[in-house]
Design a protein around this nucleic acid. Structure first.
Lengths: 200, 200
DNA sequence: GTCTATATTTGGATAGAC
DNA sequence: GTCTATCCAAATATAGAC
C-alpha cells in the first residue's frame, strides 16, 4: 500500500479523491503558479467547477485552505523521508536517499504543495505558523538523525546544522532551474549534492 | 567615492536621498516584510508620511515601483560584485569575495531589496520579467567569469553552472536562518560555502 | 510634489434555498 | 455539497486643487 493511502486511513491527511482532497490539490497548484495572495477564492472555485461560496462549506477561510495544504504536505513528506531511509544500509546511503527523496518531492507530482510550503511560509499568521512549526521540526529531525552520526564518523564536510541549512536552500532552489527533460537526471543531481556535503 | 554615489551620478540608479529614492527604499522594506501583494499603496504612503494618491506622481503603477526596486538592486549588486572581485589576486580568492559579497548583500543594509528580488520574481508580469532578465544575466556573467577558469584548473567540485545554481539557493536561503548576532560570522560562513564548492 | 475626494474594481465571506 | 445573491471591506488608480 502506498504512503498516502496509509495516511488517509490513519486520518492524518485528506483522501485526494474526495471533494476536499481535490480542493486541496487544486489550491496547491494555483497557490504555486499564481501565489497565494493572487489566487482568489473565485479562481479556485472556477478551477474546481463550483461557485466561490461553496468553498466555505469545506473551509471557513482562505487561510484555512493554505494551512491544510501545508499541514498535509509536511505530514506526507515526513513519511516519505522515513520510508526512503528505512531501505538504507549505511548512514551515507541514508543521506543519499534523503536528498533524492527531497528532490523528488520538489520536482515530482506533489511539487506544488511543497513549493507553496516554502514560498508562502511567511504568508501565514503567527498562530498558524507556530502550529505548523511543530510538524516542520519533526521533518527536520529525520534529517538530523542521519546527519549527526555521519558527522561523528567524520564523514561530513561541516557540522550537521550548517550542512542541512545550506542543503535546504540548494535543493529548494532547484525548482527554479531543474527540468526532468534535461540531460541531468534526478539521481545524478542527488549524487552531486551528496558529494558536496560529504568528505571524499 | 562609494558605489552608489557613482551609479547615481551615471544616472543608473535613483539618489537614495531624493523623494523617489526614499520611496524605493521604503517600498523594498515593506515588500520584504509583508510581501508585495500584501503591501498596499496606502501602507507605503503612510510609511512615507504622504497620501496614497501622491505615489502615482512618481510611478504610474504599483508594479512600476516593484520593477524599479528590482532594477536598481540588480545594478547595484552587479557593481558590488565587480568591485569585490577586482581586489583579488587569484580566481580562488575571487570566488571567496563573490560569495562573501553576495552574503553581505543578502544580510546587509540592502538586504531588503535583494530579498524582494528573489521572492517576488514570479510576481512580475512577463514583459517586465524578461526586461529584468537581461540585467540578471549580466550579474550571473560576473560569477561565470570567475567560475569557469577555476573549473578548467580542476579546482571546482563540479561544473560551473551546477555549482552556481546550488550556491544561489544555499546563499539565498541564509536569509531565513543566519543572524549576525550569532556565533558564526559572515566571513566564516563564506569560507564554509567556499569549502563546499571547491576541491581541497 | 502633495492633498482631497472619489471612481471603479475586486476580494473574502455570509445566508438561505435546493 | 452546491447554488444564488449579496454584503462589506479593501484595493488600485484618477482628477483637479493647492
Amino acid at each position: 500500500m502506498n504512503i498516502i493511502q496509509k495516511l488517509v486511513e490513519d486520518g492524518l491527511v485528506t483522501d485526494p479523491k474526495s471533494a476536499r482532497g481535490k480542493l486541496l490539490t487544486e489550491a496547491a497548484h494555483l497557490f504555486r503558479i499564481k501565489g497565494y495572495d493572487r489566487t482568489t477564492v473565485r479562481d479556485l472555485a472556477a478551477a474546481l467547477g463550483i461557485q466561490s461560496g461553496s468553498l466555505f462549506h469545506h473551509y471557513k477561510s482562505k487561510e484555512e485552505i493554505l494551512k491544510a495544504v501545508m499541514r498535509e504536505t509536511i505530514i506526507i513528506n515526513t513519511s516519505r523521508l522515513r520510508v526512503a531511509k528505512s531501505q538504507s544500509e549505511s548512514h551515507s546511503q541514508e543521506l543519499y536517499c534523503l536528498i533524492l527523496e527531497e528532490l523528488a518531492s520538489i520536482q515530482g507530482e506533489r511539487s506544488d504543495a511543497l513549493t507553496v510550503l516554502v514560498h508562502e511560509w511567511r504568508t501565514l499568521s503567527d498562530d498558524v505558523r507556530s502550529e505548523l512549526m511543530v510538524l516542520r521540526n519533526q521533518y527536520e529531525a529525520v534529517w538530523q538523525e542521519t546527519l549527526m552520526p555521519l558527522h561523528k564518523a567524520g564523514k561530513l564536510a561541516d557540522d550537521p546544522l550548517i550542512i542541512r541549512r545550506l542543503l535546504i536552500g540548494a535543493l529548494a532552489w532547484t525548482t527554479n532551474w531543474f527540468r526532468a527533460e534535461g540531460n541531468l537526471t534526478l539521481d545524478e543531481l542527488a549524487q552531486k549534492a551528496l558529494n558536496l556535503v560529504t568528505k571524499q
